Structures are given as C-alpha cells and as structure tokens.
Deep mutational scan, measured.
Amino acid sequence: NLRWTSEAKTKLKNIPFFARSQAKARIEQLARQAEQDIVTPELVEQARLEFG
C-alpha cells in the first residue's frame, strides 16, 4: 500500500474534484512504476502535467 506525504495530499486537493479520483489512480500508478512506496509532490505534479 502506498503512503502519501502531507505535501502530496495537499497538491491532490488542488486538483478539481471531478478529476481527482482519476488523477489519484494515475499518481499511484506512476509511483508503482517508479517502484516507490511513498507518493511525493513531484509525482502529483507529474500527473497534473499529463492531465493538462
């Protein structure tokens, strides 16, 4: 299971509600691909840039 830093959680809250669950799934996918067990603000930002 993935842990989220408080900064990453804050960044996730800045994503519009309607896109948040999809973004969260993508962020967690990116973390797993990078073999990380902690979601960082950088991963959230990477996903945000993908979504535009």
Rank of each mutant, 00 (worst) to 15 (best):
N1C: 10
L2C: 03
R3T: 13
R3M: 10
R3P: 07
W4M: 00
W4F: 01
W4S: 00
W4V: 00
T5K: 03
S6A: 13
S6I: 11
S6P: 13
E7R: 09
E7I: 06
A8R: 00
K9N: 06
K9H: 08
K9F: 12
T10I: 15
T10L: 15
T10D: 14
K11G: 07
L12R: 01
L12P: 00
K13I: 06
K13A: 12
K13H: 11
N14W: 08
N14M: 14
N14L: 15
N14R: 12
I15C: 04
I15A: 03
I15T: 03
P16F: 07
P16I: 04
P16T: 03
P16E: 04
F17R: 14
F17T: 10
F17A: 14
F17Y: 11
F18C: 13
F18D: 05
F18H: 13
F18Q: 07
F18K: 09
A19I: 15
A19C: 15
R20E: 02
R20A: 03
R20I: 04
R20D: 02
S21W: 10
Q22E: 10
Q22H: 09
Q22Y: 12
A23M: 15
K24R: 10
K24G: 02
A25Y: 09
R26L: 10
R26W: 13
R26G: 02
R26N: 04
I27W: 02
I27L: 02
E28G: 02
E28H: 03
E28W: 02
E28S: 03
Q29T: 08
Q29K: 08
Q29N: 07
L30G: 01
L30H: 03
L30W: 09
L30C: 03
L30Y: 09
A31H: 00
R32Q: 06
R32Y: 07
R32T: 05
R32P: 00
Q33T: 07
Q33A: 11
Q33V: 08
Q33N: 10
Q33E: 14
A34M: 15
A34F: 13
A34G: 07
A34I: 10
A34R: 14
E35R: 14
Q36M: 15
Q36P: 01
D37N: 12
D37I: 11
D37C: 08
I38F: 09
I38E: 07
I38V: 12
V39N: 00
V39S: 00
V39K: 00
V39R: 00
V39A: 01
T40R: 04
T40H: 03
P41V: 14
P41Y: 06
E42K: 06
E42D: 12
E42L: 06
E42Y: 06
V44H: 00
V44F: 07
Q46T: 07
Q46W: 10
A47F: 15
A47Y: 15
R48N: 06
R48E: 09
R48S: 10
R48V: 14
R48P: 02
L49F: 09
L49T: 08
L49W: 09
E50V: 08
E50D: 06
E50L: 12
E50I: 12
F51T: 05
G52A: 14
G52I: 15
G52F: 15
G52D: 11
G52C: 15
